[in-house]
Design a protein around this nucleic acid. Structure first.
Lengths: 336, 336
DNA sequence: GCGGCCTTTCAAACCGGTTTAGGTTCGCGT
DNA sequence: ACGCGAACCTAAACCGGTTTGAAAGGCCGC
């Protein structure tokens, strides 16, 4: 029992391969009656097109790629990635495309893209975790590979970008703290070469009046260490705005360890609204983002780009929103 | 500037396509000299095989699939999945294969597998999150699709399985608690229809002398709720063994909320050793697993199965190990 | 009754590899 | 001088679709 091919369908319907192909691609110029016969035959045989063969003749892969260059441990802790992928899949499966994942060590990222492009395994790619002066866009242009980026405002890109603006979220967090009376509001950021880390820091910097900045690496360990540095410094901040939830949660644990009560003596905000955020003690005030939506939009844009070739312009998405929980409180909590 | 094909290489080397193909697949029967000429020509032209064409002629997809039926939010919180994928990728990229991901709503899981199989997009699949009486193995047999499962001991499977044994980890956790003097040791498990949830519960049940069981759903919300139930029950346990870190961390927050000190009044253990586990307060005693390794092994087995067709037998992996941190302590902590 | 046009269909080429059947060339034994 | 096998290589078929150029048939007007 081998899979039926288009030949079998043609034979069964008493027509040629070409005609069958026409019908199945909805081209005009085939008599109604013949069309019905062919469709019936295909149905009866349970025929489905071989995507391999189709791929070869139209030289399309019917798939898009995603290269992940983060370390596995960091990936595991980051809620962005699965949600984004789920969103991407949502659109892809509707359009009969699939997603090829490539996880590579950080220093082989470029090779990852080359591999996807060189073997024509995908028709386009997503570019995540954009960095300042990212070399990947030039690379992809050179490879003539359609791409869609998840970018931040004010960063020109030759590819369509899903424009995520983290600033309103950070600004809202800082303002919220200021309304609670905080003045020394610190920031624990991610690696400065990441666009999203840079823009979060920038938003904090412009909104806050005064407060120390520590660069960390988005990891729990990094967040803990940065927090330690802040708490031991001469002038302790009364609030810390973290660039993600993971660091914020680790930071709260450090504060506890130092005997500093959150939120009574130290207010803390995170970013991402991970599942755990609402279930730590105290529940974390954080910023909610919607990577699922970004994934859907990014996939839309990429497929349009691949198919139409004309889709341009960026895709705005709703700004991040502050979720106030229990880790922030007015200043002036009692010392113990 | 179009990509060079095997024809171009043949022409440049002054031989026929067939010969080139022979050389590039390392078949014997080609003179050393010719071989060199061909390789040189291929090199000079920068030729890489079109995987589409190859796929068509040998009817292989050179890819394996992974169907994920969990809800995106749960995926985000689970460290298993990215680490597993990273491990899979490690093996795959060495062998020139790629990974096709399919994320589907929970009720469309079967359709997901059918889609992958029907379009011949993949040569084999991984089966994760095995359930009791899982219908997927029958489905895959019907589809004649090679598969490798991540399974638990004592569950017969017609496919090779990476045999993960969670029991030693749970047993070690319970024993550790017993050595600290605990007798009423509760368990908060995952949904009972999941094999890994069932076996963890089973291991706890056999090792513990006495203690309540609450079924939850591996989510933070579920863990919190289960913990609430346990703490409000007449006979409070002095220790709780959770089936994953996420629930354990949420549980600790609930205890705190109730004014119950961890670990002084309540000891807690998790499972997974997520990144955050070591950076909450108190740091979580948990069980370390190695999904990265499982991914590597699973991919090995799957490729062997696809290529050789003869690979059988299960693949054992090192048992999970207890990581003792600060969330467990001797019983008899002072009431406040 | 014939040329012209439109509709419908077909046969064949093509995508870029792999694989098979067969053809040269050569050296060797007799 | 001839037959024979080994070593090397080629031509062509094949995988399963898409696409093109042309042919066949029907209908029209003149």
């Amino acid at each position: 029992m081998t899979r039926p091919t288009i030949r079998d369908v043609a034979q069964a319907a008493g027509v040629s391969k070409g005609t069958v192909s026409f019908v199945l691609n909805g081209r005009p110029g085939v008599a109604e009656d013949t069309k019905r016969r062919i469709l019936a035959a295909a149905e009866a045989l349970g025929w489905t097109p071989s995507h391999q063969a189709r791929a070869l003749s139209v030289s399309r892969a019917f798939a898009v790629g995603l290269v992940l260059a983060r370390e596995p441990e960091l990936l595991g802790a980051d809620p962005f990635f699965p949600a984004f992928i789920a969103g991407v899949e949502r659109t892809l499966s509707d359009r009969g495309q699939s997603l090829v994942l490539q996880v590579v060590p950080e220093d082989e990222e470029e090779a990852g893209y080359r591999r996807l492009a060189g073997s024509k395994r995908v028709d386009g790619v997503f570019v995540l975790d954009l960095r300042v002066g990212d070399t990947r866009i030039a690379l992809l242009e050179e490879l003539a590979m359609p791409a869609v980026t998840i970018a931040r405002p004010d960063v020109p890109s030759s590819f369509p970008a899903v424009l995520v603006d983290d600033r309103p979220g950070i600004v809202a967090a800082v303002r919220h703290l200021q309304e609670l009376g905080h003045r020394r509001i610190a920031h624990v950021g991610g690696p400065a070469h990441f666009l999203h880390a840079a823009i979060r820091k920038d938003a904090w910097e412009r909104t806050t009046e005064d407060g120390p900045y520590v660069e960390a690496d988005f990891s729990a360990a990094g967040g803990a260490q940065a927090t330690r540095a802040l708490l031991e410094s001469g002038q302790r901040p009364t609030a810390i705005v973290y660039a993600n939830d993971l660091m914020a949660i680790a930071g709260m644990a450090v504060a506890q360890e130092y005997g500093i009560a959150v939120p009574a003596q130290l207010s803390v905000t995170g970013f991402d609204n991970t599942e755990l955020a609402g279930y730590v003690s105290p529940p974390l005030t954080t910023v909610r983002t919607d990577p699922y939506l970004w994934g859907r939009e990014a996939a839309q844009a990429l497929l349009d780009l691949i198919e139409g070739g004309d889709r341009h312009g960026d895709i705005p998405v709703p700004p991040a929103q502050l979720v106030v929980r229990g880790s922030t409180a007015p200043t002036g909590g009692t010392e113990r």
